[in-house]
Design a protein around this nucleic acid. Structure first.
Length: 465
RNA sequence: GGCACCAUAGCCAAGCGGUAAGGCAGAGGUCUGCAAAACCUUCAUCCCCGGUUCGAUUCCGGGUGGUGCCUCCA
Protein backbone atom coordinates (compact mmCIF):
# COMPACT_ATOMS: atom_id res chain seq x y z
CA UNK A 1 0.00 0.00 0.00
CA UNK A 2 1.17 3.48 -0.85
CA UNK A 3 0.68 6.26 1.62
CA UNK A 4 1.38 9.97 1.30
CA UNK A 5 4.00 10.85 3.87
CA UNK A 6 3.95 14.52 4.79
CA UNK A 7 7.57 14.22 5.88
CA UNK A 8 8.69 13.00 2.46
CA UNK A 9 6.10 15.07 0.56
CA UNK A 10 5.28 12.12 -1.60
CA UNK A 11 3.62 8.75 -1.61
CA UNK A 12 5.69 5.96 -0.17
CA UNK A 13 5.23 2.24 0.18
CA UNK A 14 3.96 1.51 3.67
CA UNK A 15 6.43 -0.91 5.21
CA UNK A 16 5.84 -1.48 8.91
CA UNK A 17 8.65 -1.65 11.43
CA UNK A 18 7.49 -5.09 12.50
CA UNK A 19 6.19 -7.24 9.66
CA UNK A 20 2.47 -7.76 9.94
CA UNK A 21 1.99 -5.13 12.62
CA UNK A 22 1.09 -1.46 12.23
CA UNK A 23 1.46 0.85 15.17
CA UNK A 24 -0.43 4.06 14.65
CA UNK A 25 -1.30 7.12 16.66
CA UNK A 26 -3.96 9.67 15.87
CA UNK A 27 -4.34 12.93 17.75
CA UNK A 28 -7.66 12.78 19.51
CA UNK A 29 -10.01 15.40 20.87
CA UNK A 30 -9.62 17.82 23.70
CA UNK A 31 -12.63 16.80 25.69
CA UNK A 32 -14.22 20.08 26.67
CA UNK A 33 -17.21 19.88 24.32
CA UNK A 34 -18.98 17.65 21.83
CA UNK A 35 -16.78 17.16 18.81
CA UNK A 36 -17.43 18.97 15.56
CA UNK A 37 -17.49 17.93 11.93
CA UNK A 38 -13.89 19.03 11.51
CA UNK A 39 -12.80 16.67 14.26
CA UNK A 40 -14.88 13.96 12.68
CA UNK A 41 -12.89 13.90 9.47
CA UNK A 42 -9.60 12.55 10.86
CA UNK A 43 -11.49 10.18 13.12
CA UNK A 44 -13.42 8.74 10.18
CA UNK A 45 -10.52 8.80 7.73
CA UNK A 46 -8.01 7.12 9.97
CA UNK A 47 -10.60 4.70 11.27
CA UNK A 48 -11.04 3.72 7.64
CA UNK A 49 -7.28 3.35 7.24
CA UNK A 50 -7.20 1.16 10.30
CA UNK A 51 -10.09 -0.95 9.01
CA UNK A 52 -8.40 -1.37 5.66
CA UNK A 53 -5.08 -2.37 7.20
CA UNK A 54 -6.91 -4.97 9.24
CA UNK A 55 -8.71 -6.17 6.13
CA UNK A 56 -5.25 -6.51 4.59
CA UNK A 57 -4.28 -8.78 7.45
CA UNK A 58 -2.24 -6.46 9.63
CA UNK A 59 -2.52 -6.45 13.36
CA UNK A 60 -3.13 -2.78 14.05
CA UNK A 61 -2.29 -1.21 17.35
CA UNK A 62 -4.25 1.98 17.21
CA UNK A 63 -3.87 4.66 19.85
CA UNK A 64 -5.94 7.82 19.98
CA UNK A 65 -5.62 10.10 22.95
CA UNK A 66 -7.98 12.23 24.93
CA UNK A 67 -6.52 15.54 26.00
CA UNK A 68 -8.25 15.85 29.34
CA UNK A 69 -6.29 18.69 30.91
CA UNK A 70 -5.77 22.10 29.34
CA UNK A 71 -6.96 25.68 29.40
CA UNK A 72 -10.20 24.95 27.60
CA UNK A 73 -11.20 22.31 30.10
CA UNK A 74 -10.24 24.51 33.00
CA UNK A 75 -12.30 27.38 31.62
CA UNK A 76 -15.26 25.14 31.02
CA UNK A 77 -15.10 23.67 34.51
CA UNK A 78 -14.84 27.14 36.03
CA UNK A 79 -17.74 28.53 34.07
CA UNK A 80 -19.90 25.57 35.03
CA UNK A 81 -18.78 25.53 38.61
CA UNK A 82 -17.63 21.98 38.26
CA UNK A 83 -14.30 20.18 38.05
CA UNK A 84 -11.97 19.38 35.19
CA UNK A 85 -12.30 15.60 35.65
CA UNK A 86 -16.08 15.94 35.60
CA UNK A 87 -15.99 17.85 32.30
CA UNK A 88 -13.53 15.38 30.81
CA UNK A 89 -15.52 12.36 31.88
CA UNK A 90 -18.68 13.78 30.40
CA UNK A 91 -17.24 14.62 27.00
CA UNK A 92 -15.31 11.39 26.72
CA UNK A 93 -18.62 9.63 27.13
CA UNK A 94 -20.19 11.88 24.52
CA UNK A 95 -17.23 11.32 22.22
CA UNK A 96 -17.99 7.62 22.22
CA UNK A 97 -21.67 8.22 21.54
CA UNK A 98 -20.96 10.30 18.43
CA UNK A 99 -18.09 8.09 17.32
CA UNK A 100 -20.34 5.04 17.53
CA UNK A 101 -22.97 6.76 15.42
CA UNK A 102 -20.29 7.48 12.83
CA UNK A 103 -19.29 3.81 12.94
CA UNK A 104 -15.85 4.69 14.22
CA UNK A 105 -14.37 1.62 15.84
CA UNK A 106 -12.97 1.82 19.32
CA UNK A 107 -9.23 2.40 19.32
CA UNK A 108 -7.00 -0.28 20.78
CA UNK A 109 -6.10 2.26 23.45
CA UNK A 110 -7.52 5.68 24.30
CA UNK A 111 -4.86 7.10 26.60
CA UNK A 112 -5.70 10.14 28.68
CA UNK A 113 -3.10 12.77 29.35
CA UNK A 114 -3.86 12.83 33.06
CA UNK A 115 -3.08 9.14 33.34
CA UNK A 116 0.38 9.64 31.90
CA UNK A 117 1.66 12.60 33.87
CA UNK A 118 4.43 10.52 35.42
CA UNK A 119 5.75 9.59 32.01
CA UNK A 120 5.44 13.16 30.84
CA UNK A 121 7.48 14.40 33.79
CA UNK A 122 10.10 11.76 33.08
CA UNK A 123 10.27 12.87 29.45
CA UNK A 124 10.69 16.51 30.46
CA UNK A 125 13.47 15.53 32.85
CA UNK A 126 15.26 13.69 30.07
CA UNK A 127 14.99 16.74 27.84
CA UNK A 128 16.47 18.94 30.53
CA UNK A 129 19.29 16.47 31.18
CA UNK A 130 20.12 16.38 27.52
CA UNK A 131 20.14 20.15 27.28
CA UNK A 132 17.03 20.43 25.12
CA UNK A 133 14.80 22.04 27.70
CA UNK A 134 15.16 24.45 30.59
CA UNK A 135 13.12 25.40 33.60
CA UNK A 136 12.12 29.05 33.85
CA UNK A 137 11.80 30.81 37.15
CA UNK A 138 7.99 30.80 37.05
CA UNK A 139 7.69 27.01 37.07
CA UNK A 140 7.36 26.63 33.31
CA UNK A 141 9.69 24.36 31.41
CA UNK A 142 10.46 25.22 27.80
CA UNK A 143 11.81 23.21 24.94
CA UNK A 144 14.75 24.89 23.31
CA UNK A 145 13.91 24.81 19.63
CA UNK A 146 17.36 25.79 18.42
CA UNK A 147 18.87 22.88 20.30
CA UNK A 148 17.21 20.48 17.89
CA UNK A 149 18.77 20.74 14.43
CA UNK A 150 15.92 19.01 12.62
CA UNK A 151 13.31 21.51 13.71
CA UNK A 152 11.09 22.41 10.76
CA UNK A 153 11.62 19.25 8.78
CA UNK A 154 7.98 18.18 8.81
CA UNK A 155 6.40 21.52 8.01
CA UNK A 156 9.16 22.66 5.69
CA UNK A 157 9.81 25.78 7.70
CA UNK A 158 13.22 27.08 8.47
CA UNK A 159 13.90 28.22 11.99
CA UNK A 160 14.95 31.64 10.77
CA UNK A 161 11.76 32.18 8.79
CA UNK A 162 9.77 31.16 11.80
CA UNK A 163 11.78 33.47 13.97
CA UNK A 164 10.81 36.53 11.95
CA UNK A 165 7.12 35.78 12.34
CA UNK A 166 7.20 34.74 15.97
CA UNK A 167 5.64 36.76 18.72
CA UNK A 168 6.69 36.85 22.30
CA UNK A 169 4.05 36.67 24.93
CA UNK A 170 5.33 38.86 27.74
CA UNK A 171 3.84 36.56 30.36
CA UNK A 172 6.14 33.77 29.26
CA UNK A 173 9.72 33.34 30.25
CA UNK A 174 11.31 32.00 27.10
CA UNK A 175 14.93 32.38 26.15
CA UNK A 176 13.96 32.30 22.51
CA UNK A 177 10.61 33.25 21.03
CA UNK A 178 10.40 29.93 19.19
CA UNK A 179 10.61 27.88 22.38
CA UNK A 180 7.43 26.26 23.58
CA UNK A 181 6.20 25.00 26.94
CA UNK A 182 6.53 21.34 27.79
CA UNK A 183 5.46 21.94 31.37
CA UNK A 184 3.31 24.76 32.65
CA UNK A 185 3.57 26.05 36.19
CA UNK A 186 0.16 26.07 37.86
CA UNK A 187 -1.58 29.38 38.28
CA UNK A 188 -3.77 30.01 41.25
CA UNK A 189 -6.81 27.75 41.35
CA UNK A 190 -5.71 25.52 38.52
CA UNK A 191 -5.43 21.75 38.75
CA UNK A 192 -1.81 20.68 39.21
CA UNK A 193 0.59 17.82 39.69
CA UNK A 194 3.73 17.88 41.80
CA UNK A 195 6.90 17.96 39.76
CA UNK A 196 10.59 18.75 40.13
CA UNK A 197 9.67 22.28 38.95
CA UNK A 198 6.87 22.77 41.42
CA UNK A 199 3.16 22.45 40.92
CA UNK A 200 2.10 22.36 37.31
CA UNK A 201 0.65 20.49 34.38
CA UNK A 202 1.82 19.14 31.03
CA UNK A 203 2.11 21.28 27.93
CA UNK A 204 -0.06 20.18 25.09
CA UNK A 205 2.59 18.91 22.67
CA UNK A 206 4.44 16.79 25.19
CA UNK A 207 1.35 14.74 26.00
CA UNK A 208 1.22 13.16 22.58
CA UNK A 209 4.95 12.45 22.59
CA UNK A 210 4.80 10.73 25.95
CA UNK A 211 1.65 8.74 25.29
CA UNK A 212 2.52 7.62 21.80
CA UNK A 213 6.01 6.50 22.73
CA UNK A 214 4.87 4.74 25.86
CA UNK A 215 2.19 2.80 24.11
CA UNK A 216 3.72 2.24 20.69
CA UNK A 217 7.44 2.49 21.34
CA UNK A 218 10.00 5.21 20.67
CA UNK A 219 9.71 4.62 16.95
CA UNK A 220 6.39 3.61 15.47
CA UNK A 221 4.75 3.49 12.08
CA UNK A 222 2.04 6.06 11.49
CA UNK A 223 1.23 9.33 13.17
CA UNK A 224 -1.82 11.06 11.84
CA UNK A 225 -4.06 14.05 12.38
CA UNK A 226 -5.50 17.12 10.74
CA UNK A 227 -3.40 19.29 8.48
CA UNK A 228 -3.47 22.14 10.95
CA UNK A 229 -1.52 20.02 13.40
CA UNK A 230 1.52 19.85 11.13
CA UNK A 231 2.75 23.06 12.63
CA UNK A 232 3.38 23.51 15.41
CA UNK A 233 1.94 20.44 17.14
CA UNK A 234 3.55 17.64 15.17
CA UNK A 235 6.72 19.57 14.52
CA UNK A 236 7.07 20.00 18.26
CA UNK A 237 6.30 16.37 18.94
CA UNK A 238 9.10 15.34 16.63
CA UNK A 239 11.52 17.74 18.24
CA UNK A 240 10.73 16.63 21.79
CA UNK A 241 10.62 12.95 21.03
CA UNK A 242 13.70 12.69 18.88
CA UNK A 243 15.66 15.04 21.11
CA UNK A 244 14.85 12.81 24.07
CA UNK A 245 15.45 9.42 22.48
CA UNK A 246 17.90 10.15 19.71
CA UNK A 247 15.79 7.87 17.54
CA UNK A 248 13.35 8.52 14.72
CA UNK A 249 9.85 9.16 16.01
CA UNK A 250 6.97 8.34 13.64
CA UNK A 251 7.93 6.92 10.24
CA UNK A 252 4.88 8.01 8.24
CA UNK A 253 3.02 11.24 8.84
CA UNK A 254 -0.47 11.43 7.45
CA UNK A 255 -2.62 14.54 7.44
CA UNK A 256 -6.17 15.06 6.33
CA UNK A 257 -7.46 18.23 4.69
CA UNK A 258 -9.91 20.68 6.15
CA UNK A 259 -13.62 20.89 6.19
CA UNK A 260 -15.21 24.16 5.23
CA UNK A 261 -18.73 25.02 6.19
CA UNK A 262 -20.65 26.55 3.32
CA UNK A 263 -17.37 27.53 1.70
CA UNK A 264 -16.05 29.21 4.78
CA UNK A 265 -13.24 27.98 6.94
CA UNK A 266 -14.42 26.46 10.17
CA UNK A 267 -12.47 27.66 13.12
CA UNK A 268 -12.79 28.39 16.75
CA UNK A 269 -12.18 32.04 16.15
CA UNK A 270 -14.93 32.32 13.53
CA UNK A 271 -17.25 30.41 15.81
CA UNK A 272 -18.90 28.62 12.91
CA UNK A 273 -18.10 25.08 13.89
CA UNK A 274 -20.77 22.51 13.48
CA UNK A 275 -21.16 19.85 16.12
CA UNK A 276 -21.63 16.28 14.99
CA UNK A 277 -24.27 16.04 17.68
CA UNK A 278 -26.32 18.71 15.94
CA UNK A 279 -25.88 17.21 12.49
CA UNK A 280 -27.19 13.92 13.88
CA UNK A 281 -30.51 15.59 14.63
CA UNK A 282 -31.12 15.97 10.92
CA UNK A 283 -29.08 13.30 9.19
CA UNK A 284 -28.07 9.71 9.47
CA UNK A 285 -24.44 9.93 10.52
CA UNK A 286 -23.62 7.05 8.23
CA UNK A 287 -24.51 9.40 5.39
CA UNK A 288 -22.08 11.90 6.91
CA UNK A 289 -19.46 9.19 6.96
CA UNK A 290 -20.13 8.42 3.32
CA UNK A 291 -19.90 12.12 2.55
CA UNK A 292 -16.53 12.34 4.30
CA UNK A 293 -15.21 9.36 2.35
CA UNK A 294 -16.49 10.61 -0.98
CA UNK A 295 -13.51 12.91 -1.42
CA UNK A 296 -9.85 12.04 -1.05
CA UNK A 297 -8.80 12.59 2.55
CA UNK A 298 -6.06 15.06 1.68
CA UNK A 299 -8.32 17.36 -0.29
CA UNK A 300 -10.37 20.00 1.41
CA UNK A 301 -14.11 19.37 1.44
CA UNK A 302 -16.98 21.70 1.80
CA UNK A 303 -19.77 20.71 4.12
CA UNK A 304 -23.32 21.72 3.34
CA UNK A 305 -26.73 20.28 4.01
CA UNK A 306 -27.27 19.73 0.29
CA UNK A 307 -24.18 17.56 0.00
CA UNK A 308 -25.15 15.42 2.97
CA UNK A 309 -28.57 14.97 1.44
CA UNK A 310 -26.89 13.74 -1.72
CA UNK A 311 -24.81 11.34 0.33
CA UNK A 312 -27.90 10.13 2.11
CA UNK A 313 -29.56 9.29 -1.20
CA UNK A 314 -26.40 7.57 -2.38
CA UNK A 315 -26.28 5.57 0.84
CA UNK A 316 -29.83 4.46 0.07
CA UNK A 317 -28.55 2.88 -3.13
CA UNK A 318 -26.10 0.79 -1.20
CA UNK A 319 -28.74 -0.19 1.33
CA UNK A 320 -31.11 -1.25 -1.42
CA UNK A 321 -28.45 -3.41 -3.06
CA UNK A 322 -27.72 -4.99 0.30
CA UNK A 323 -31.41 -5.75 0.89
CA UNK A 324 -31.96 -7.10 -2.58
CA UNK A 325 -28.97 -9.36 -2.18
CA UNK A 326 -30.28 -10.57 1.18
CA UNK A 327 -33.64 -11.33 -0.39
CA UNK A 328 -32.01 -13.25 -3.21
CA UNK A 329 -29.93 -15.23 -0.76
CA UNK A 330 -33.08 -16.24 1.02
CA UNK A 331 -34.21 -18.19 -2.01
CA UNK A 332 -31.32 -19.33 -4.14
CA UNK A 333 -31.92 -21.43 -7.22
CA UNK A 334 -30.29 -24.83 -7.48
CA UNK A 335 -28.24 -25.35 -10.59
CA UNK A 336 -25.61 -22.72 -11.53
CA UNK A 337 -26.25 -20.94 -14.80
CA UNK A 338 -23.91 -19.26 -17.28
CA UNK A 339 -24.99 -15.95 -15.75
CA UNK A 340 -23.82 -17.23 -12.38
CA UNK A 341 -20.46 -18.14 -13.84
CA UNK A 342 -20.04 -14.75 -15.46
CA UNK A 343 -20.96 -12.95 -12.28
CA UNK A 344 -18.69 -15.20 -10.23
CA UNK A 345 -15.84 -14.26 -12.52
CA UNK A 346 -16.60 -10.55 -12.20
CA UNK A 347 -16.58 -10.42 -8.39
CA UNK A 348 -12.80 -10.80 -7.98
CA UNK A 349 -12.34 -8.01 -10.51
CA UNK A 350 -14.43 -5.67 -8.41
CA UNK A 351 -12.45 -6.72 -5.37
CA UNK A 352 -9.16 -6.07 -7.12
CA UNK A 353 -10.30 -2.64 -8.26
CA UNK A 354 -11.45 -1.81 -4.76
CA UNK A 355 -8.14 -2.85 -3.26
CA UNK A 356 -6.26 -0.99 -5.95
CA UNK A 357 -8.05 2.21 -5.03
CA UNK A 358 -7.50 1.77 -1.31
CA UNK A 359 -3.86 0.80 -1.85
CA UNK A 360 -3.35 4.11 -3.58
CA UNK A 361 -3.08 6.33 -0.53
CA UNK A 362 -6.52 5.41 0.73
CA UNK A 363 -8.41 6.67 -2.30
CA UNK A 364 -11.86 6.17 -0.84
CA UNK A 365 -13.50 8.29 -3.54
CA UNK A 366 -12.24 5.93 -6.21
CA UNK A 367 -13.09 2.92 -4.03
CA UNK A 368 -16.64 4.18 -3.66
CA UNK A 369 -16.88 4.43 -7.42
CA UNK A 370 -16.00 0.74 -7.60
CA UNK A 371 -18.51 -0.01 -4.88
CA UNK A 372 -21.32 1.69 -6.78
CA UNK A 373 -20.36 -0.18 -9.92
CA UNK A 374 -20.50 -3.37 -7.92
CA UNK A 375 -23.84 -2.44 -6.37
CA UNK A 376 -25.28 -1.91 -9.82
CA UNK A 377 -23.98 -5.28 -10.97
CA UNK A 378 -25.52 -6.91 -7.90
CA UNK A 379 -28.86 -5.20 -8.46
CA UNK A 380 -28.95 -6.38 -12.04
CA UNK A 381 -27.82 -9.87 -11.11
CA UNK A 382 -30.41 -10.49 -8.40
CA UNK A 383 -33.33 -9.37 -10.55
CA UNK A 384 -33.77 -13.10 -11.13
CA UNK A 385 -33.22 -16.07 -8.83
CA UNK A 386 -29.55 -17.03 -8.76
CA UNK A 387 -27.27 -19.81 -7.59
CA UNK A 388 -25.96 -19.97 -4.06
CA UNK A 389 -22.29 -19.81 -4.88
CA UNK A 390 -22.51 -16.59 -6.87
CA UNK A 391 -24.75 -14.97 -4.27
CA UNK A 392 -22.35 -15.86 -1.50
CA UNK A 393 -19.40 -14.43 -3.39
CA UNK A 394 -21.34 -11.19 -3.79
CA UNK A 395 -22.24 -11.27 -0.12
CA UNK A 396 -18.62 -11.67 0.97
CA UNK A 397 -17.44 -8.74 -1.14
CA UNK A 398 -20.35 -6.60 -0.04
CA UNK A 399 -19.63 -7.35 3.61
CA UNK A 400 -15.91 -6.75 3.24
CA UNK A 401 -16.35 -3.43 1.49
CA UNK A 402 -18.97 -2.25 3.97
CA UNK A 403 -16.76 -3.27 6.85
CA UNK A 404 -13.72 -1.45 5.48
CA UNK A 405 -15.63 1.71 4.69
CA UNK A 406 -17.67 1.49 7.88
CA UNK A 407 -20.99 1.63 6.06
CA UNK A 408 -24.17 -0.28 6.86
CA UNK A 409 -22.70 -1.18 10.22
CA UNK A 410 -25.74 -0.25 12.25
CA UNK A 411 -28.03 -3.07 13.25
CA UNK A 412 -31.00 -2.95 10.94
CA UNK A 413 -33.39 -5.32 12.71
CA UNK A 414 -36.00 -2.65 13.16
CA UNK A 415 -39.62 -3.58 13.67
CA UNK A 416 -42.45 -1.89 11.86
CA UNK A 417 -45.41 -0.74 13.96
CA UNK A 418 -48.47 -2.98 14.01
CA UNK A 419 -50.71 -0.35 12.43
CA UNK A 420 -48.37 -0.07 9.47
CA UNK A 421 -48.26 -3.81 8.98
CA UNK A 422 -52.05 -4.00 9.25
CA UNK A 423 -52.41 -1.34 6.57
CA UNK A 424 -49.99 -3.22 4.39
CA UNK A 425 -52.12 -6.35 4.76
CA UNK A 426 -55.27 -4.49 3.93
CA UNK A 427 -53.61 -2.99 0.88
CA UNK A 428 -52.63 -6.43 -0.27
CA UNK A 429 -56.26 -7.49 -0.12
CA UNK A 430 -57.66 -4.46 -1.91
CA UNK A 431 -54.98 -4.73 -4.57
CA UNK A 432 -55.98 -8.31 -5.18
CA UNK A 433 -59.50 -7.00 -5.66
CA UNK A 434 -58.10 -4.28 -7.96
CA UNK A 435 -59.42 -1.56 -5.70
CA UNK A 436 -56.67 0.85 -6.78
CA UNK A 437 -58.23 3.90 -5.19
CA UNK A 438 -58.12 2.38 -1.73
CA UNK A 439 -54.65 0.95 -2.36
CA UNK A 440 -53.30 4.40 -3.23
CA UNK A 441 -55.04 5.86 -0.23
CA UNK A 442 -53.30 3.38 2.03
CA UNK A 443 -49.99 4.19 0.40
CA UNK A 444 -50.58 7.83 1.27
CA UNK A 445 -51.49 6.93 4.83
CA UNK A 446 -48.29 4.94 5.21
CA UNK A 447 -46.31 7.78 3.73
CA UNK A 448 -47.77 10.08 6.34
CA UNK A 449 -46.60 7.58 8.96
CA UNK A 450 -43.12 7.72 7.50
CA UNK A 451 -43.06 4.62 5.34
CA UNK A 452 -42.85 4.06 1.64
CA UNK A 453 -44.29 1.03 -0.10
CA UNK A 454 -42.58 -0.71 -2.95
CA UNK A 455 -44.54 -3.28 -4.88
CA UNK A 456 -42.37 -6.08 -6.18
CA UNK A 457 -42.82 -9.51 -7.65
CA UNK A 458 -43.11 -11.08 -4.22
CA UNK A 459 -45.49 -8.61 -2.68
CA UNK A 460 -45.03 -5.19 -1.18
CA UNK A 461 -42.17 -4.02 1.00
CA UNK A 462 -42.25 -1.36 3.63
CA UNK A 463 -39.37 1.07 3.97
CA UNK A 464 -38.73 3.73 6.49
CA UNK A 465 -38.36 7.05 4.74
C1' G B 1 7.46 37.84 3.37
C1' G B 2 8.33 32.11 4.10
C1' C B 3 6.05 27.14 3.17
C1' A B 4 2.22 24.36 0.84
C1' C B 5 -2.36 23.31 -1.94
C1' C B 6 -6.42 23.67 -5.51
C1' A B 7 -9.00 24.86 -10.54
C1' U B 8 -12.65 18.33 -14.25
C1' A B 9 -20.40 18.43 -16.39
C1' G B 10 -26.15 21.94 -13.05
C1' C B 11 -23.92 20.15 -7.93
C1' C B 12 -20.18 16.79 -5.56
C1' A B 13 -15.89 14.06 -7.05
C1' A B 14 -11.96 10.24 -9.03
C1' G B 15 -8.38 9.96 -12.84
C1' C B 16 -2.82 12.56 -13.77
C1' G B 17 1.03 10.83 -20.73
C1' G B 18 -2.85 7.28 -24.97
C1' U B 19 -8.05 10.01 -25.90
C1' A B 20 -12.80 11.69 -19.36
C1' A B 21 -14.79 6.49 -12.89
C1' G B 22 -18.69 7.09 -9.58
C1' G B 23 -22.72 9.73 -6.80
C1' C B 24 -26.72 13.55 -6.76
C1' A B 25 -29.91 16.20 -10.12
C1' G B 26 -32.05 16.05 -15.42
C1' A B 27 -33.95 13.54 -20.12
C1' G B 28 -35.78 9.01 -22.69
C1' G B 29 -36.97 3.81 -22.08
C1' U B 30 -38.04 -1.32 -19.64
C1' C B 31 -40.87 -3.14 -15.51
C1' U B 32 -45.53 -1.54 -12.70
C1' G B 33 -52.85 -0.93 -12.10
C1' C B 34 -50.35 3.86 -11.13
C1' A B 35 -46.04 4.72 -8.48
C1' A B 36 -41.51 3.53 -6.02
C1' A B 37 -37.17 0.70 -6.34
C1' A B 38 -34.14 -1.58 -9.91
C1' C B 39 -32.12 -1.94 -14.78
C1' C B 40 -30.90 0.15 -19.85
C1' U B 41 -29.78 4.61 -22.73
C1' U B 42 -28.42 9.68 -22.50
C1' C B 43 -25.78 14.19 -20.29
C1' A B 44 -17.92 17.21 -20.22
C1' U B 45 -12.69 17.46 -24.62
C1' C B 46 -10.92 18.79 -18.12
C1' C B 47 -9.50 27.88 -16.08
C1' C B 48 -6.21 30.65 -19.96
C1' C B 49 -1.47 31.10 -22.91
C1' G B 50 3.01 28.97 -24.33
C1' G B 51 6.44 24.58 -24.37
C1' U B 52 7.96 19.16 -24.29
C1' U B 53 5.85 14.79 -26.90
C1' C B 54 3.67 10.78 -32.28
C1' G B 55 0.08 12.09 -28.47
C1' A B 56 -1.37 16.31 -22.44
C1' U B 57 -6.93 17.00 -18.47
C1' U B 58 -2.41 14.44 -17.00
C1' C B 59 4.67 16.82 -17.54
C1' C B 60 7.34 21.95 -17.70
C1' G B 61 7.04 27.50 -17.80
C1' G B 62 3.96 31.80 -17.43
C1' G B 63 -0.77 33.85 -16.35
C1' U B 64 -5.74 34.23 -13.96
C1' G B 65 -8.82 32.83 -9.99
C1' G B 66 -9.42 30.45 -5.17
C1' U B 67 -7.41 28.20 -0.38
C1' G B 68 -4.49 26.74 3.78
C1' C B 69 -0.30 26.90 7.40
C1' C B 70 3.38 30.28 9.62
C1' U B 71 -1.38 32.17 16.21
C1' C B 72 -5.73 28.21 20.07
C1' C B 73 -7.84 24.93 16.17
C1' A B 74 -8.87 18.29 13.06
Amino acid sequence: MQVYNTMARKKEELVPLTPGVIRMYVCGPTVYNFFHIGNARPFVVFDTLRRYLEYRGYKVIFAQNFTDIDDKLINRANSEGTTVPEVAERYIKEYYADADALSIERATVNPRATEHVGEIIALVETLIERGHAYAADNGDVYFSVRSFPGYGKLSGQSVDDLESGARIDPTEHKRDPLDFAVWKGAKRGEPYWESPWGKGRPGWHIECSAMSMNILGETFDIHAGGQDLVFPHHENEIAQSEAATGKPFARYWMHNGYININNEKMSKSLGNFLLVRDIAKEFDLEAVRLFLLSAHYRNPVNFSRELVEQAQTALGRIKTARERLDDAMGKPVGAPTPEDAAFLAAVPEFRARFEGAMDDDLNTADALGVFFDFARAVNAFVSEPRGKEALEAADRLMKDVCEVLGLLQHASGEEFPKEALALLEERKAVRAAKNWARADEIREQLKAMGFSVEDGKDGAKLKRI
